[in-house]
């Protein structure tokens, strides 16, 4: 009787053990996507974020074994990708490229949902350093250095696209850090910022440091004042940094435009790891890096942890400047 009892107990224990092992099995096996993975891009085709996503998507699709599809959801300065991602299933089949600090403004200064810190951050797509250029149009206020700008008596007119994307927070925060009075004129389309600076519609503007936005500088119709990087950009060695001009805070990575990849909130870590691995493969592809960097973006891989920290840092910086940002947001 006793033996039977012991035997049945043993059987029970074994059964439980087998059941547990069976239940645990899926968790130990590497997760694989079962259908195409979608990358949400909050901007139109042909832009820096879109091009990089398409290029990286090709490599990632080989690593993941399923097609990677780019879904452009332009509008609201990139916000659509954030709201759609937030409501997507955390099953690894939807991820998004998100532009910061632009999206941090919606949260920290506009008080909008969702909290970016709840996303499962994967890594960096590209970083997008910004630079300031000033008009050289005769008869207009002309600025040549940050120190000189600090002496401005009346607000310096700065052209921006709007309060949506990255240009706005970067312009507000840098003016605040350097300490010059500024007046924003918003509503220009990207190309109009170049014709505007040539025409002298405004004195300064901040744009991503890529070739297409430096044409006025090349032709001498504008002067590059500063690049927001700790060191000079290897492709644009003539543009001085803020550090050189005595404003070390302008070298902070929180001031660089960052396109970061994220998965929806509460994505299981094993799924996030698989996607991260695929991204790392894309980032290690030398030919791909060359293509993406051809127009000035920088491919600088970042781990999951560092990306999460960068998001928190950027939110904190925007939060610190939120009073100033709110002055221009209605």
């Amino acid at each position: 009787m006793r033996i039977l009892n012991t035997l049945s107990k043993a059987c029970l224990v074994m059964l439980v053990a087998v059941a547990l092992a069976l239940a645990a099995k899926p968790a130990t096996a590497a997760w694989k996507p079962s259908k195409p993975v979608t990358i949400l891009v909050g901007f139109s085709v042909g832009g820096a974020m879109d091009t990089a996503a398409r290029l990286q998507g090709e490599v990632m699709s080989k690593a993941l074994g399923v097609p990677v599809v780019i879904r452009n959801v332009p509008g609201a300065g990139g916000r659509n990708s954030v709201t759609i991602l937030n409501r997507s299933k955390p099953d690894g089949h939807t991820m998004a490229a998100i532009n910061l600090p632009g999206q941090a403004v919606n949260q920290a200064a506009r008080g909008m949902d969702p909290d970016l810190r709840t996303f499962t951050w994967i890594g960096r797509q590209v970083s997008n350093p910004y630079f300031m250029q000033a008009t050289t149009k005769a008869g207009k206020d002309q600025w040549t250095s940050l120190k000189q700008m600090k002496t401005a008596k009346k607000p310096i007119k700065a052209g921006i696209t709007g309060t949506g994307g990255n240009t706005f927070p970067i312009s507000v925060i840098t003016a605040n850090l350097v300490g010059f009075p500024v007046e924003f004129i918003a509503g220009f389309k990207g190309p109009e910022l170049i014709t505007g600076i040539i025409r002298g519609d405004f004195s300064i503007t901040n744009l991503p440091l890529v070739k297409r936005w430096t044409t006025a500088v090349q032709s001498g119709e504008a002067k590059a004042i500063v690049v927001y990087l700790p060191k000079r950009h290897p492709k644009f060695p003539n543009i001085p940094t803020g550090v050189e001009q005595g404003f070390p805070e302008l070298g902070s990575s929180s001031l660089v435009g960052q396109n970061l990849y994220a998965l929806p909130p509460k994505t299981p870590p094993e799924i996030a790891s698989v996607i991260e691995e695929a991204l790392v493969k894309a980032n290690n592809d030398a030919a791909l890096k060359e293509k993406i960097e051809a127009n000035g973006n920088i491919v600088a891989p970042l781990s999951k942890q560092d990306t999460t920290k960068l998001v928190a840092d950027m939110l904190a910086l925007v939060q610190k400047n939120s009073a100033l940002l709110k002055k221009y947001i209605k």
Binding site: G46, G47, G190, P191, I194, K211, R212, W213, T215
Partner: peptide, 12 residues
Amino acid sequence: SFGIPGSLAMAL
């Protein structure tokens, strides 16, 4: 001539 795209098609 400006190196700046005037439209989506041009950006591409």
